[in-house]
């Protein structure tokens, strides 16, 4: 049986893992390569690195990190943040990433999804969606870009369906409302998107306890769940979370 994946997300700024709340204020919390190795040992199923480096001249630091990670861990990992062109994609894939993640750049230029899928295979192309409640939209949710700062006129459900149609292999669904709250994932949103598309959906934003992951798998119908501060700061281990989910009869890789 296909297992539910636990994905640890590392935001990387100038070569250091950092953690922010609601996209405001960031604190450095460690070396991304050492952290990746630690989570690999704990049995994480996948890792995501988001490059939130502000200046483009420091982009090379991220590529070095990707290369080092690829030599140390033997599970899939994806890289996102600032990926706008096929050549950006190629750079991280050749450095050893399994997948690339696009977000704002795909909203601005949706053809990057289809072009990426054509060149590297759809399994390589992950599309991140930052979603906010918006009752003016048919689904009740709208899309925001640029790290949650800019609202765009796009319905979340329509966009998810379009992402699939353009050939993406996976959606990372991040709830801006839930992000950083530790009150649990946005179950209603996750379920709506996951049941409307035929590609895997990764729930993101709001995890504070192991039960939150159980809920988003059971009720939210997520295929995978993204966690960050639970393991970076709050003392949870991937192994401990998986043990809990296993007891809740959720299929996970132990």
């Amino acid at each position: 049986m296909l297992q539910k994946r636990i994905i640890v997300c590392l935001d990387v700024r100038d070569g250091k893992t950092t953690k922010g709340v609601k996209f405001k204020g960031n604190v450095d919390i460690g070396d991304p390569v050492l952290m990746a190795e630690e989570y690999y040992k704990q049995g994480v199923d996948e890792l995501v690195f988001y490059d939130i480096t502000a200046s483009s001249e420091k982009r090379g630091i991220m590529i070095d990190i990707v290369k080092k990670v690829a030599e140390k861990i033997f599970i899939p990992f994806s890289v996102g943040g600032g990926i706008r062109t096929l050549s950006d994609m190629k750079q991280v894939i050749l450095a050893g990433a399994e997948k690339v993640s696009v977000n704002s750049s795909a909203v601005k230029n949706p053809s990057i999804i289809s072009e990426g899928a054509k060149h590297f295979g759809k399994q390589c192309i992950v599309v991140g969606m930052d979603v906010e409640m918006d009752f003016s939209k048919p689904s009740g949710y709208g899309i925001v870009i640029n790290g949650g700062r800019t609202k765009v006129d796009l319905d979340a459900l329509e966009w998810a369906k379009k992402i699939e149609k353009l050939g993406a292999g996976e959606i990372v669904l991040n709830s801006i409302d839930a992000d950083g709250t530790k009150n649990g994932y946005e179950i209603k949103l996750t379920r709506m998107i996951s049941e409307s598309v035929g590609i895997p959906v990764v729930a993101s934003g709001g995890a504070g306890t192991s039960m939150h992951l159980a809920d988003v798998f059971n009720e939210g119908k997520a295929d995978a769940a993204l966690i960050a501060s639970m393991v970076h700061i709050d003392g949870y281990t991937v192994g401990g979370i998986k043990e809990f989910l296993n007891k809740e009869n959720i299929p996970v890789r132990i």
Partner: peptide
């Protein structure tokens, strides 16, 4: 088969 309510591709960890 696309009519079995399965997500395609089969992506992730399986036994």
């Amino acid at each position: 088969s696309h009519n079995m309510d399965l997500k395609i591709p089969h992506m992730g960890w399986n036994q």
